[in-house]
Simulated scan of single mutants.
Amino acid sequence: MWDYQHAAETTAAPEALWRHWSDIAAWPQWNDGIEKIEVDGPLAVGTTFRMTPPGDDPIEMRIVEVVAGELFTDEMDAGDFVVRTVHRLDRLDGGLTRVTYRTEITGAFDPELGPAITADFPDVVAALVRLGERG
């Protein structure tokens, strides 16, 4: 198993951040790690989407967990391995919100896969935080 987590704190309200997560079709507008996205429904358990990283082939993903306003988990099942990413919002004291992206990979996988997938997490979280802080 391999795992990685990146978190940042912001003054943005969880509701503002959740609005951006809920609009899956708009993710490429603020997430530079997505060139194109095709989504088959809302941010709900069972919804599938195809996310194309810049210069790469599409990746089929599925939403496997949603707690509205708090977290969602997506999963890519590649057969020999599974990549699960939890996207979480936690209310903190002082009106702050912690934004966390946590990825776990299980199964037989190339050891370079995890770092390749998560390399942009600091930039992606920072972009989401900027959007949330703008309202």
Score class of each variant (00 low, 15 high):
Glu112Arg: 05
Glu35Pro: 12
Met76Asn: 12
His20Glu: 09
Trp21Phe: 15
Trp21Asp: 04
Leu128Phe: 09
Arg19Phe: 04
Asp32Pro: 07
Ala8Ser: 11
Leu128Ala: 08
Pro53Asp: 10
Trp30Asn: 11
Glu60Pro: 10
Gly132Thr: 08
Leu128Gly: 09
Thr11Val: 14
Ser22Trp: 00
Ile34Gln: 07
Val86Leu: 05
Gly79Ile: 03
Thr48Trp: 07
Pro42Asp: 15
Thr100Gly: 02
Ile59Tyr: 04
Glu35Phe: 09
Met1Glu: 06
Trp21His: 08
Pro53Gln: 09
Leu96Lys: 14
Arg84Gln: 05
Ala44Ile: 10
Ala25Cys: 11
Thr85Glu: 10
Asp120Lys: 03
Ala8Thr: 12
Glu38Gln: 15
Arg19Tyr: 02
Tyr4Glu: 11
Ile105Leu: 08
Ala127His: 02
Ala12Tyr: 00
Gly33His: 08
Gly33Ser: 14
Gly33Ala: 13
Val66Ile: 13
Ala78Asn: 06
Arg98Gln: 08
Glu9Lys: 14
Arg84Trp: 00
Val99Ile: 15
His20Thr: 08
Glu65Thr: 02
Leu43Ala: 10
Met1Gly: 13
Gln5Pro: 14
Leu71Tyr: 01
Trp21Glu: 05
Glu112Ser: 14
His20Gln: 13
Ile59His: 08
Pro122Lys: 02
Pro122Asn: 12
Ala78Gly: 06
Val83Tyr: 01
Thr103Met: 07
Gly69Thr: 11
Ala108Gln: 14
Leu17Pro: 08
Thr10Trp: 06
Asp32Trp: 05
Asp32Gln: 15
His6Asp: 12
Val83His: 02
Leu131Ala: 03
Leu43Cys: 09
Thr11Gln: 07
Pro53Ile: 07
Ile34Thr: 12
Val86Phe: 00
Ala126Arg: 12
His6Asn: 11
Asp110Thr: 06
Asp3Phe: 09
Asp40Gln: 13
Val86His: 07
Met76Phe: 02
Ala68Val: 06
Asp3Val: 09
His6Arg: 13
Thr52Glu: 10
Glu104Met: 05
